[in-house]
């Protein structure tokens, strides 16, 4: 499949189906983007597993940090790659050793490795590249619109209320594609973080 753009329902399907996410390369530094994403997804109810060899054995937001994917003692639905593009292939190869196999390999905003993607897809693993699951969760639930961000969705359906928390919106919102323009798409492909 093409990885230049993704249908909203593909992304929503992934975020709605995965429960356990291993984040490779997450930083314990509280101002780093990887920490932001980890904390947000943890607050949204995902089982989050930090992977960072420099911090193995310590805890990050109450979750035990592992040195590598193979050390995680439970099944993982999704591997979120917070490493630069050239490391993605190695991480995908590590993921192949897991039993059961993860369902999704997600490479962060700015991370793209087409060889790693082909290898994963050939083995039945879904792939997302150059996107952030926090931003996509915020966009498809429309929480991110509180920051004035163009969610590129529209809907005349009332979203279900999340069962817990305040200032939270549901991911299960039926939407049509909204104001996706050439400009926004070009911009998205150029992001550098």
């Amino acid at each position: 499949m093409s990885h230049d753009s993704y249908a909203d329902q593909y992304i929503r399907g992934i975020l709605n189906s995965v429960k356990t996410i291993a984040v490779v390369g997450v930083s314990p530094n509280t101002i780093r983007p990887s920490y932001f994403a980890f904390k947000y997804l943890l607050e949204r109810g995902y089982r989050m597993i930090p992977v960072n060899p420099g911090h193995a054995g310590r805890e990050l937001l109450g979750q035990t940090v592992y040195a590598k994917l193979a050390d995680i003692p439970e099944p993982i639905d999704m591997v979120d790659v917070f490493r630069s593009s050239e490391h993605a292939l190695g991480i995908v190869q590590e993921a192949f050793a897991l039993k059961p196999l993860p369902k999704v390999i997600w490479m962060q905003l700015g991370v793209r490795n087409d060889e790693a993607a082909r290898l994963a897809e050939a083995n039945g693993i879904k792939v997302v590249m150059n996107r952030c699951p926090k931003i996509e969760y915020g966009r498809l639930s429309s929480e991110i619109a509180w920051m004035g961000v163009n969610t590129r969705t529209i809907s005349a359906k009332k979203a279900p209320l999340p069962t817990r928390g305040i200032q939270r919106l549901s991911l299960d919102r039926p939407t049509l594609s909204g104001g996706a323009t050439g400009a926004a798409t070009r911009a998205q492909s150029k992001t550098g973080s």
Partner: peptide, 19 residues
């Protein structure tokens, strides 16, 4: 679901949804 809506549709709907 993935077609891009026109300007008039966005002028009414973009950003808004039932509370």
């Amino acid at each position: 679901t993935e077609r891009t809506p026109g300007f008039a549709t966005l002028a009414i709907h973009a950003g808004a949804q039932p509370d």
